[in-house]
Nucleic acid binder design. Structure first.
Lengths: 239, 239
DNA sequence: GTGACTTTGTGCATTTGTTCACGAGCGCGT
DNA sequence: ACGCGCTCGTGAACAAATGCACAAAGTCAC
């Protein structure tokens, strides 16, 4: 019994991070009417190796059939269950600037159990305005909104300067999961989970790889000059 | 010489992913007038352990002073250089829906060498409109915009359905780095780097952890009932 | 029912990343 | 000049994640 729990806890973080992608791929297959899929095909659709996919799925249980593959619908259900998408996750979004608006609209696309139940902002000019079918409410109403809908996830779409204050307020209402779009670290008490999404971080990582590629090519060119006589085509693109 | 190149290449991916956060923390310190910082302090500001921070920084070189710490300004410069932020990275954003608009505005906040030089959309109604001081141009002008400004990074903020087409077009213009906000996998030729940012994926990961926490607490409660007589306070919050 | 074929699930080796612990080097007070 | 305390840089131990290869377990044809 406790062993069951331990095995459930045993899903590695790296695997969890890929499950949403698998689920998306499976959903796409369902829409195309495909009912069965091999690890090879699904892995290709999700952009991973088939070995990795099989190992990931093996952490959830044995939902495949040897010699056949996976039942698309059933596997999708099991992944959704593992991710907790079979239950309801009421969400509030704080900060109704451009980003908050985009998120409020975009969230309509989400198939899972996420439901935006509150849009909040500190600016009185925005309060009352209708966005994506929901009236914006003032930050002071946070506690009311949160308890009214048993909100479990908070999304921060404010400037960095107010992010920590907003986060503290969210945590005070009992929210234990925070998605932070502000470009700053949040400090939270133990037991609260935060994830950060940041455009600038991603661009910087892309820039690093781009720069490295440029340096590599340049260095390769030099090396190629030296070795040109012996090896006309030194290397293919690595990685 | 080749060894130099190898050592440069040797910066681990996990480290690269953390460099932007270090840089941000350093920038914040600069703004507060702090000129010197220890690994312990900087690690706390960036939300990592000091050992990890020191190992990460050691991959870039020896920029610290033993017994003293790091010079904030100098370290920031070295990280920025490593990330490629000392050069110019012209960016185009494709898709001027709510998200694209938010990105176009937000990008003004970016301190690094990123410069939005083009906003594109397929919808004629949006073309010509002014967003964040830039006129939206039609997708057909992509090649012109790209060559005119030597664009090196493309950002996709379109619906999933058109993301792959847009990506192909970006790659055709010679762009080798793509940041994808559409909820789908992109297939690209070798030598092209893509990163995906997705609200729904992040929410699902948060949901997983929330659910696990709930299950753990429930199970702990049961275990606690069993063990209650012997251990009134079974455990503190783990992790 | 049997054999050939297919595809999963998994043990093992390898690579990658993290933590620990401590030696090396620097500034400072005396 | 010299020891003392502080903090970086790093090798070695440890942990996590990945890739490989194959046995186990199923379907299908006949």
């Amino acid at each position: 019994m406790v062993a069951d729990l331990t095995s459930r806890r045993g899903v590695p973080d790296a695997t969890v991070a890929r499950l949403p992608e698998y689920l998306r791929a499976l959903t796409a297959l369902t829409e195309r009417g495909v009912t069965s899929v091999s690890s090879e095909e699904l892995a290709a659709a999700a952009g991973v190796s088939s070995a990795k996919l099989r190992k990931d799925l093996s952490h959830l249980g044995s939902y495949g059939v040897r010699g056949v593959g996976y039942d698309v619908e059933h596997l999708a259900y099991e992944i959704a269950r593992e991710l907790g998408l079979t239950q309801d996750w009421p969400v509030v979004i704080v900060g109704m600037g451009n980003l908050g608006r985009a998120l409020a609209d975009y969230s309509g696309f989400i198939k899972g159990g996420f439901r935006v139940v509150g849009l909040l902002d500190r600016d009185p000019a925005l309060v009352g305005q209708d966005i994506a079918g929901l009236a914006v409410r003032h930050m002071d109403d946070l506690a009311a909104v949160a308890s009214e809908h048993s909100v479990s996830i908070g999304v921060i779409a404010t400037p960095a300067a107010s992010a920590q204050d907003v986060c503290d307020a969210l945590v005070d209402t009992g929210i234990r999961a925070v998605l932070n779009f502000a470009p700053c670290m949040l400090s939270v008490p133990d037991g609260v989970d935060t994830r950060r999404v940041d455009l600038s971080t991603e661009l910087q990582i892309l820039a690093f790889h781009s720069q490295r590629r440029m340096l590599d090519v340049a260095a390769e060119g030099v090396a190629g000059d030296e070795a040109a006589a012996s090896a006309p085509t030194p290397v293919g693109a690595a990685r």
